[in-house]
Computed example of a mutant assay.
Amino acid sequence: MYNFMKKGAFMLLVACLAMGMASCSDDDPDYSNVTPPTVAVTHSISGRVTGVDGEGISATVSMGGTSATTKADGTFVFENVAAGTYTLKAEADGKESKETSVTVSDGDSNNPVWNVALSNKGTAINVEPDGSASGVVTSETLKGNEDGEIEMTLTAPAGAVEAGTQIIVTPIYSTDEVEQAAVRSAVTKAVGSTLLIGTRVSSSNASAELQESVTLEYDVDPEIAETITAQKYVNGQWVDAEYTVGTDGKVTVTVDQFTSYSLLCNATISSSKTSEAVSFSPDSWDNLYGSGDMAVSSASYSYKIGTDISSSGTNKITAYLIEIVARAAGAGVTEATGTYPINVTLPVGTAMSISGQQEVTTLTASALGRSVSGRQYGTVSVITRSWNRQHTGGTD
């Protein structure tokens, strides 16, 4: 009798457990079919404004009807930018302004980065009562690369310029106008088309004209002087300028009108593109087996702005090459922190991750058997991925 009662109690317990499990199964949702959330694609445009020396400066960056003031390190950012093409302009007291065109692609979360170096405004040289003038201007360089300096001496004979005016001498380091026009020009005897240094010669009187030719002497290394050619910008195109090269390496250009002049050398610039991972914090959220909804607001990430040039100027040629790379890709490099907005709710049974890549362009300038390389950091691409418990229905 006891065994029969014991067996009956056991069977009753099994039946109750079965009914309880069936009841729980009926009430419990099928989390394998929960739809993961989709993160809205957002864009930003960021960058850094520096001097030619690579140090961050206080500047204003405008984009359409909006503007941003740089932080102490020269960085700036425009958040929540819609897809499209924008003109950015950087301005700072005592500096030449610069602008560029930036395109934000639709669909992907690409975040362009602009690193820009602003050079000093031109130097004013007073004209003597007899119409003569003379003055020396030295090019700016990256901090620690003073061997890359180029001294420019302007000499105007008597009667060359109207008395009481000023001659403005402005070094040109890297502009699309100079570089592209030099490459396009069909009237050139250049053995190379890379800008070594340029100079804009103008007058405080916009309507003034030179009555006599002026000389502009560049003190460069004799070895690279042998590869130099000079051009001037006339009627919207670059043409040959009259110049001579001395045995001491000094290149003397004849300035016969107020315009821009350039020294081109036979340096070549090559480039290759790669990418490197961008780290996020946090980079994942797991609510596959949670007890309630999980709110996800944003993730912070670190990336780089600028160009990292690891070489040092061991002589004037390598120092010049360092300046060429810096002018083409941006001076200095710094690490910046961004915030990527997510703003989704993860239901129980879902998870999400975020990752990214930053475009890296390696630029190499070569001349006379030497070469210098720099790593230019560009657009940051962000990818978010969510999935459910069965890893189906995921979104990117």
Rank of each mutant, 00 (worst) to 15 (best):
Y2R: 12
F10P: 00
M11W: 12
A18P: 00
S32G: 12
P36Y: 09
P37L: 09
T38Q: 15
T42F: 06
S44W: 08
T60V: 12
T69V: 07
A72H: 01
V81Q: 04
G84W: 04
T85N: 03
A90D: 07
E91A: 13
A92M: 02
D93G: 03
D93Q: 10
D93S: 14
K98M: 13
V104L: 10
N111A: 09
N111P: 09
L118N: 07
A124D: 15
A133V: 06
G135V: 05
V136W: 01
V137I: 13
N145A: 08
N145T: 08
G148W: 04
E149W: 03
T153Y: 05
T155F: 05
A156R: 09
A160P: 04
V161S: 06
E162W: 00
A163M: 05
G164Y: 07
T165S: 15
Q166L: 01
I168G: 05
S174W: 03
D176C: 04
D176N: 14
E179Y: 06
E179V: 15
Q180S: 13
A181T: 13
A181P: 00
T188P: 02
V191E: 14
R200K: 15
S202Y: 03
S203A: 11
S204H: 02
A206C: 00
A208C: 06
A208Y: 05
A208L: 13
V214R: 04
V214D: 05
E217S: 15
D219Q: 12
A225W: 02
A225S: 09
T227R: 05
T229N: 10
Q237L: 09
Y243R: 01
V245D: 00
V255C: 05
D256F: 12
Y261C: 03
T268C: 07
I269D: 07
S272Q: 14
E276L: 13
S279N: 13
Y289K: 12
S298R: 02
K304C: 08
G306I: 11
I309W: 12
S311D: 15
I317H: 08
I317C: 09
T318P: 11
A329G: 09
A336C: 03
G338H: 03
T339D: 14
I342S: 01
I342P: 00
L346N: 08
P347K: 07
V348P: 01
G356M: 08
Q358T: 11
V360Y: 12
L368T: 10
V372H: 07
G374S: 11
Q376H: 14
T379A: 14
V380S: 10
V380R: 11
T384G: 07
W387A: 01
G393D: 05
